[in-house]
């Protein structure tokens, strides 16, 4: 047997699942990560501590372990967790620790004088964050965030450990039939590259532009 059009279509289906998983993970990780970042800069020590612990613990757990945990661990408690949900949840949780830390840095990178100007105008903490700090932090955060989305795309390949049929798993299944590992995984690698490199480039360009503006 040789690599056929049907195989290619199968790989592209896997690619779509990779994209879907990445999007779910990014959205979930973004929402959680924003909460983590905001808690990390809160004036309440307990919230800062909780978020700091979260970041440290989650960053210390390998992603495949998290995926096993949510797939089999939640399964034991009686939930029948679909592989997609388990993988998305795990990657989202993992991403929240990294995005939360990146975004905390961006929030704190907004000049102290801007916080003071907001305080002096009698804005409350929420208004200060939403109207003054976050709009400036977001600008700072865009390059690193796009950069991390590349990481998320690559992280979706860990979903192979629970048999979720995304791009890498599709390649593995085709290879089990064809025994053409070099060809098949080269194609798989190229698809990942095609997904990731525009994002990497955009991130680099935005980073350079930000630097040029002296931010």
């Amino acid at each position: 047997m040789t690599f056929s059009l049907a195989n290619l279509v199968y790989l592209l289906q896997g690619t779509l699942w990779t994209v879907a998983l990445a999007l779910l993970s990014f959205v979930g990780g973004g929402v959680l990560g924003l909460a983590v970042a905001l808690m990390r800069v809160s004036r309440f020590g307990a919230l800062r501590f909780a978020a700091g612990t979260w970041i440290q613990v989650i960053q210390g757990i390998p992603l495949p372990v998290l995926i096993f945990l949510s797939y089999f661990g939640l399964g034991v408690t009686g939930f029948d967790v679909p592989a997609l949900a388990a993988a998305a949840l795990s990657i989202a949780v993992n991403s929240s620790a990294f995005l939360g830390d990146i975004w905390r840095g961006c929030i704190q990178a907004v000049a102290k004088t801007q916080w003071e100007a907001a305080d002096s105008l009698a804005l409350n903490g929420f208004q200060r964050m939403v109207d003054v700090v976050l709009p400036q932090a977001i600008r700072l955060a865009i390059p690193a965030t796009i950069g991390f989305s590349v990481q998320i795309i690559k992280n979706t390949s860990y979903a192979v450990v629970i048999g979720f049929i995304e791009l890498t798993q599709s390649g593995k299944i085709i290879n089990n039939a064809l025994y053409e590992p070099f060809l098949i995984f080269t194609i798989v690698g190229l698809v990942y590259f095609a997904l990731c490199s525009p994002l990497s480039n955009a991130s680099r360009r935005l980073e350079a532009r930000l630097r040029a503006r002296g931010a």
Binding site: A111, T113, Q114, E116, A117, S120, V132, P135, Q136, R139
Partner: peptide, 12 residues
Amino acid sequence: GIVFQSYNLFPH
């Protein structure tokens, strides 16, 4: 109201 040496306008 307060005005600072470095203006501190909101750049965005």
